[in-house]
Computed example of a mutant assay.
Amino acid sequence: MRYEEIGQRVKAFRLASGLSADEVAQKIGISRTALYRVEKGEIAKIDTLERLSDLLEVSLPTLLGVGIEYMPSAVSYFERTRQLEETADQIIVLAGPVSFLLASDGFEKALHTLLEESVPGDVPQRQRLLADVTSVLDILRQRKEAYRRRRPNIVNLVSADQIARFLNNGLMGKPDLPDVVRRERHTLARGEIEHLAALIEADDLGVQIGLVTDTLPMNGFQIFRQADRSTLTISPFRLGEQPNIRVGVAMATSAPEALKLHHKIVTDAWRTAMKGPTAAAYLRELLSADTSAPTTRSPRRPEAKTKAV
């Protein structure tokens, strides 16, 4: 049993609950110091974990990492992602059109506005959801800092159709925005695709990007590879086009069958994806065809060369 990972899950679900460490400790009858020891990965009594499970509304098997770990909150999902990234040697990302670790500074600056826009004005518990936005942004900042410090290898697969749609729609948290704002968000989307093209042209050995012309799963997923194990996460939460941090359930598992099946998706998609100069040329042509008005035109997709992950 990996007590450090149990502690990480406790922290992720505690953050998602909106309760402070003091509040959680008081409600389950332990000291704050004892709770922090649990979160740091020290051995915890099973009855303590059971009380945490009840309070945080998460099953005990999920806290223990038995089978599939379910995360109904974007806060807990992004915190678990941060934890996994901190020890990963390689990260395989199938999500788009924006992968946060590779996103531009402009995208990060716009993210607060986008995520707040994605929370409807009449939704129940809106203030709590806005507090979640703040928590998510704090976690994202920590993720980017850790990535810049550690520089794990990244394999990023992005749908070519999603990129074209992203350029057409712009970087928006909701559809009913004034025309002047829509034009600004369209410019932000162009900047993000230009940034992606520049990343591909930089030919960084630690960052491999493939543009997929075939159908990809609706929910994105990531595989975190460590020296002694790998973990798969599947998530409906997204930060780019039509951001969502409110609705859905993310999952994490280290089950060999799940990893094998999802790695096959990656291998098959990578084999036929556009890469290197071919991918960069596609994006540059897409950008040159784009205007400030919505467009449905897409450039011709060149033949992709085969390359193994």
Rank of each mutant, 00 (worst) to 15 (best):
H263Y: 13
E108L: 05
P302G: 10
R151Y: 03
G248E: 00
I68V: 15
L102T: 08
I234W: 07
L56H: 04
V10S: 04
P61I: 06
T33P: 03
R2F: 07
I6V: 15
A164Y: 07
R165G: 07
V247I: 14
H263F: 12
R37C: 03
E23A: 15
E69Q: 13
L111K: 00
E4R: 15
A12I: 10
S288A: 15
E145W: 08
F13A: 02
E184T: 08
L129I: 09
A250V: 03
I43W: 08
A289W: 09
E116W: 09
A202K: 14
M1K: 13
L49E: 00
N219K: 12
D214F: 06
L283N: 11
L15R: 15
F78H: 04
T113P: 05
G65F: 03
T81R: 13
V207D: 02
V93F: 10
S17K: 10
I46K: 08
P178S: 01
Y147S: 04
Q127F: 06
A308T: 12
T113I: 08
S159Q: 01
A131K: 15
T306Q: 12
P178F: 02
A269C: 13
G191F: 03
K11M: 11
S59L: 09
E42K: 15
A103Q: 08
A289C: 09
A255S: 15
L63C: 02
E39L: 01
T253H: 06
L287R: 02
D54M: 10
E86M: 11
E50V: 13
R246V: 11
N169P: 01
L239W: 00
T295Y: 06
I154Y: 01
Q242I: 03
A255K: 12
V93I: 14
